[in-house]
């Protein structure tokens, strides 16, 4: 690196650390998704329809996750119901 380049470079952001940060986020996200069984999205859709028969909820108000802990798997269902007074 030449003398001039040295001072020029110092002001710039470190692009490698940006790359690392972006990778850590996307890789963690994708690992989570790929470890889920293929039927989860369909299950989520079906559940949404059943619940909608009784309570009006949006697509993003239901979350289905499968967690593996050793030999047992836990299907976690998280539904945010709308406010009662509405």
């Amino acid at each position: 690196m030449s003398l001039f380049a040295f001072f020029r470079e110092r002001r710039k952001q470190n692009s490698a650390s940006i790359a690392k940060e972006r990778l850590q986020i996307i890789v963690a996200h994708e690992r989570g998704r790929h470890s889920q069984p293929d039927y989860l999205p369909q299950l989520q859709k079906d559940l949404l329809e059943v619940i909608r028969k009784y309570v009006p909820i949006e697509q993003d108000q239901i979350q289905v996750e499968l967690e593996n802990q050793g030999s047992c798997s836990i299907l976690e269902l998280n539904i945010t119901l709308p406010d009662r007074d509405r």
Binding site: N14, S15, A16, S17, A19, K20, Q24
Partner: peptide, 16 residues
């Protein structure tokens, strides 16, 4: 380039 912060270092890739 790793030293200059322009390229992911070996530790970075290992960690990910």
């Amino acid at each position: 380039r790793v030293n200059k912060g322009e390229m992911l270092g070996v530790e970075d890739v290992e960690e990910i």
